[in-house]
């Protein structure tokens, strides 16, 4: 009888890929190839840290929310995002164990700019309509990509996503309610949403990442598809986003700020003007409109509160 310990790395790899192909869930303590582990660490720590960094642009509107009910709604929404961050970082921490790393290291990687946060959270918010649009369309976009990973081969991530996606649906509804109120409001309020859409359009296209490596030199989509972490490509997601949201955007009387956008009946795809991928490359180098400000805020609050974490550690010890 050949025990797992006696198996060669090649055998283990074959067995692992069989499990992946059979749709089995891989758990934290299971053997996994280094490439799989590293792909997951990158994906999940980036996802987790993006939830946390993503709280910052919306948080700007929490104290300013324009009614008591909206204040309650957006506080709950931003809190959920922090909760998602917590959930995901715990999943990432388990994967990091063999390397002797923990959450502190993830934070340091963010501060050193080795770990990046999602490109959409580098953008500036200017009005209350941005807070609504983030909930409606950014969370809407996130639902599309995350729903695809609900069946991810890595069990702990798939389970975390079950809960996250359920909450994201509420977020999209929260955002849509803000947008609907503005759309039914005064001319000034309507103008706020159009301006927000114009401001966020390119960021929404970039949200899904480049269609292929040739655009920016690298994309993580190949390994994630090979290991059945996700099934669809960046472009598939972008097309799904158009399918779902273009009709809704138009029905609110808004104009998409891309005159070339149209559905090609013959090819069955949406044709659109490419966003500025040079700008995208800058954003993912943390050179976006608010990249450094948000990083500084996170760095600074982490350092400024170091005494609290030290004090808690002293109590535990």
């Amino acid at each position: 009888m050949t025990g797992v310990l006696a198996m060669t790395e090649e055998d283990q790899m074959d067995r692992f890929m069989e499990r992946i192909e059979a749709g089995e869930k891989i758990e934290a303590d299971d053997w996994m190839p280094e490439e799989y582990r590293i792909t997951l660490i990158k994906l999940i720590s980036m996802h987790g840290i993006s939830e946390i960094m993503g709280a910052l642009p919306e948080k700007e509107w929490v104290p300013k929310a324009p009614s008591l009910r909206r204040k309650l709604g957006i506080m709950a929404k931003v809190q959920d995002e922090m909760g998602h961050g917590q959930l995901l970082l715990r999943v990432a921490e388990d994967l990091l164990k063999p390397y002797g790393k923990n959450r502190g290291d993830i934070m340091q990687d963010l501060f050193n700019e080795d770990l990046k946060f999602h490109n959409v959270f580098h953008m500036e918010t200017k009005t209350w309509a941005d807070a609504g649009l983030i909930g409606w369309l950014v969370d809407g976009a996130a639902i599309i990509t995350q729903t695809d990973m609900l069946k991810a081969s890595y069990g702990p991530y798939a389970r975390a996503l079950q809960r996250i996606c359920a909450e994201e649906v509420f977020h999209a509804q929260h955002g849509e309610a803000i947008i609907m109120a503005l759309a039914e409001g005064t001319e000034e309020q309507k103008a706020l949403i159009q301006e927000a859409l114009n401001r966020w359009w390119e960021a929404l296209l970039m949200f899904f990442g480049p269609a292929s490596k040739s655009t920016t030199g690298s994309t993580k989509q190949d390994a994630t598809i090979k290991y059945k972490i996700r099934t669809k490509t960046n472009e598939d997601f972008r097309q799904m986003f158009f399918d779902r949201y273009i009709p809704r955007i138009l029905s609110l009387g808004l104009t998409v700020p891309d005159p070339t956008l149209h559905y090609d009946e013959a090819e069955k795809v949406w044709k659109y003007a490419q966003p500025d991928w040079t700008e995208f490359k800058k954003i993912i180098r943390n050179e976006g409109p608010r990249s450094q400000e948000r990083l500084n805020l996170r760095r600074h609050s982490y350092e400024h509160n170091a005494w609290v974490r030290d004090a808690l550690a002293a109590v535990v010890n």
């Binding site: 946390i52 910052l56 929490v62 922090m82 917590q86 970082l89 609050s301 509160n305 609290v308």
Partner: peptide
Amino acid sequence: LGLAPHIE
């Protein structure tokens, strides 16, 4: 919000 000493 977003600035507390730790995520929990």
